[in-house]
């Protein structure tokens, strides 16, 4: 496999008057879970369809696993697995038959198919229910099965389009756990679109944020958080009155201060020493019970990026 799993150069796709993807350039390193984040209608699904060669770009180009998506789309589809917007399972068939079909599609031998289906369904905890019609399964179980299908033929790259969307917390966590362990075990590159920032933060080695088809930011979640702002201090206790807040706002190292959910949240400039600030607060009569240092969450970074673009 090439070291870069996906290379996108100035990719653009128009639908009549709408530009769904606008001059997108991006490189996805092999062997990581790459988060592709953006609001609804940002162009995430269109990008996946372009990368799979299911749509032709209006301009620009993309390479997936070294294959041109415009001229070698068959090669791309042969070497990738997908879990698109919908699980895409045949609900009238059993779980085993769904995987059996795609195992045949990917020309696995009967022995390979049998062993791999057992391995994946056992890992997902649904081996005992393999003979049941998929239509009777819960949404979470269907997503797990669809994930198993995407990984069935051991592709070096899989595309997952919002795999936990619409799942309850327990099911989403289970799908996330399976994805994390299977991706790590099999060394597969994952191109993951999601709305869930906590999911991206937990799973992704790198994320890209797009808005209206254009790339807004790309990097490791920590880098994005660092880029978005300095450290944050959360102080729990009593005595957070207006005098204390006004005092804090006069300090040069304080960017913003406010009371949130009964704790004091202070956004600081980079490399700020926290101890003098805590002493200052104690001196001003604040009864400090707990002090936490933190950074902006990826969700806050995402929202900030969306605001910046406006």
């Amino acid at each position: 496999m090439t070291e870069t799993a996906i290379r996108i150069e100035n990719l653009t796709r128009d639908f009549e008057t709408v530009r769904a993807v606008d001059g997108l350039s991006l490189e996805v390193p092999a062997g990581i879970i790459f988060g592709f984040l953006g609001p609804n209608g940002a162009g995430k699904t269109t990008t996946i369809n372009l990368l799979l060669g299911l749509l032709e770009p209006t301009s620009g180009r993309a390479e997936v696993l070294g294959f041109d998506t415009r001229t070698q789309s068959d090669e791309v589809r042969t070497r990738t697995g997908t879990l698109l917007e919908h699980p895409g399972l045949y609900e009238q068939l059993s779980a085993e038959d769904n995987l059996e079909f795609y195992g045949r599609v990917w020309r696995m031998t009967p022995a390979e198919r049998q062993a791999r289906i057992k391995e994946l369904l056992t890992h997902m905890g649904v081996w005992e229910r393999r003979k049941e019609r998929v239509g009777t399964w819960s949404k979470g179980m269907k997503q797990k099965l669809a994930l198993a299908r995407a990984l069935l033929h051991r592709p070096p790259l899989i595309f997952l389009d919002e795999p936990t969307a619409g799942l309850d917390v327990v099911a989403a966590t289970a799908v996330r756990d399976d994805l994390e362990t299977l991706a790590a075990r099999e060394g597969v590159t994952v191109f993951l679109t999601t709305h869930n920032m906590a999911e991206a933060e937990r799973l992704c080695g790198q994320v890209a944020v797009i808005r209206e088809g254009s790339l807004v930011a790309v990097g490791h979640p920590d880098e994005l958080r660092a880029r978005a702002g300095g450290p944050r201090l959360e102080i729990f206790g009593r005595g957070f009155n207006d005098n204390v807040l006004n005092l804090l706002r006069t300090r040069p190292e304080v960017v913003a201060a406010g009371v949130q959910n009964e704790h004091l949240a202070i956004d600081l400039r980079k490399d700020t020493d926290v101890a003098p600030l805590v002493s200052l607060l104690v001196g001003a009569g604040v009864q400090v019970e707990e002090v936490r240092r933190g950074k902006a969450s990826l969700e806050e970074v995402f929202l900030a990026l969306m605001e910046e673009e406006r």
């Binding site: 299911l54 990738t80 997908t82």
Partner: peptide
Amino acid sequence: ERHTLGTLLASRLP
């Protein structure tokens, strides 16, 4: 109608 077409088209089948 059953949303299985996308996955089928994304496979290697000619």
